[in-house]
Design a protein around this nucleic acid. Structure first.
Lengths: 231, 231
DNA sequence: GATGGCATACTAGTATGCAAGTTGCCGCGA
DNA sequence: TCGCGGCAACTTGCATACTAGTATGCCATC
């Protein structure tokens, strides 16, 4: 038993089998390929992916912790319905934390930070066409992550990634309307402008407006897809 | 190891074996019975608790997700050092969310809510003697949870319970000084007073002052126990 | 004596068999 | 036709055997 503490950094490099199953299932639930209420079984998933039940069990476990699955002992495992209450809580938590971090970012941003944000915005504008949706989404996330980094709180974004999960499930339910991408990028531009101007109040307000746009879309989707939800 | 501060809020009714191992290990890490850097193995833990490796593995994985353990594949599992960065992030997140919720609580509190808070304060005063430390701790938590409930955001407290984990590890390292309990209860009283007065600004300020007190204690403990920490 | 390579003893990851429990179908009887 | 009892087929939880990879200490070699 070595008492040597923590010599190696890489902690999350579990077996590729686990990650493969986990990623595939997560994507399937997020995209709606497997629908809320649908039952899945360890045995069937294991057979389908050509692995044993053990890594599947761990993937199930993890997804259940994230709120994607509901494991009922001796009965089965089911895709969890999207809980409107959980979505609302996600919104609240996200708005509270991101408004605070963007304020900090505006106070601390160096020239290099502003340049980095501007680069992200340029990349973002380059992928606004509907067929590059996944790239657009990734850059959206990257922008928010960068703001957290500039604020000196990268871990806050890590937390939000987990909290946002239920929100993202809703987002995946809809193809966004025509002007959506432009609207998002425009709001990001406003935020970056206020950060560049070292204007905390303005940055917070711009962020709040941005998130309210996103949340409004989520509510709209929830209304038009009520069969996926649970009060 | 009496009662862990929060025995894992999630509503998970899995087998008793898993929970037994999980609770025991969590308490052992939190209390410092197993020290940071120390290695533990699935096999030995399984033998010690008279179960197989499977439930132990699940407990390990969960504890690793919470930041208590670090699993290094093919090498071993170790108690994670307390990361000062993670503690700082916990503080930041807690302050941000709790200041917001207490503000909401002050806006929404009904007479019954104030009465409930007052009851909690009375109970709290009754367990201020040092030999009732665990009861004092539980009531501290209950008060914060109640504030979140009044704010209409009970889930925020659930999140904070997880986020606070690293903070609690630090707290367990020290026996509190003489006037500590009185100081805490006094600050809670101030918060409740401002909530009862429907004064959001005052409530937020009182909460901020309270958390700063707690955080200052954490920093002090971190300084005097630096061997448990990792920068 | 210092050093490089190899055997050994550990680790976690995976596979699989068994146990305990629930659900739902299906046949039987009223 | 309706209701009920029992069985069968599923589920996950747990135990155990096996695989693959790593750290370590011994031993031969220089």
């Amino acid at each position: 038993m070595t008492d040597s503490p923590t010599s190696s950094a890489p902690t999350d490099i579990r077996g590729p089998r686990l990650h493969g199953v986990y990623d595939a299932l997560r994507a399937a639930v997020l995209s709606g390929e497997i629908r809320p209420g649908e039952g899945i079984s360890e045995t069937r998933v294991a057979a389908r992916y050509g692995v044993s039940r053990t890594p599947v069990r761990e993937a199930f476990r993890r997804l259940a912790d994230e709120g994607f699955l509901r494991i009922v002992p001796q009965v089965g495992t089911f895709v969890a319905p999207i809980q409107l209450g959980a979505v609302s809580d996600s919104q609240f938590i996200r708005e509270t934390l991101e408004c605070r971090t963007v304020r900090l970012a505006a106070e601390r941003a160096a020239a290099a930070d502003v340049a980095s944000l501007t680069r992200l915005l340029d990349s973002h504008r380059a992928v606004m066409s509907p067929d590059r949706h996944s790239e657009f989404f990734a850059l959206d996330e990257a922008t928010h992550a960068e703001l957290a980094r500039i604020a000196g709180r990268p871990a806050v974004w890590d937390l939000l990634v987990a909290v946002k999960a239920q929100l993202d499930r809703v987002r995946f339910l809809s193809l966004h309307s025509e002007g959506w991408a432009a609207k998002i990028v425009g709001e990001h531009q406003s935020i970056v402008d206020r950060v560049a101007a070292r204007d905390p109040d303005g940055a917070e307000e711009a962020m709040r407006a941005h998130l309210r746009t996103v949340f409004a879309a989520v509510d709209e989707i929830a209304r038009t897809n009520s069969h996926f939800f649970e009060t």
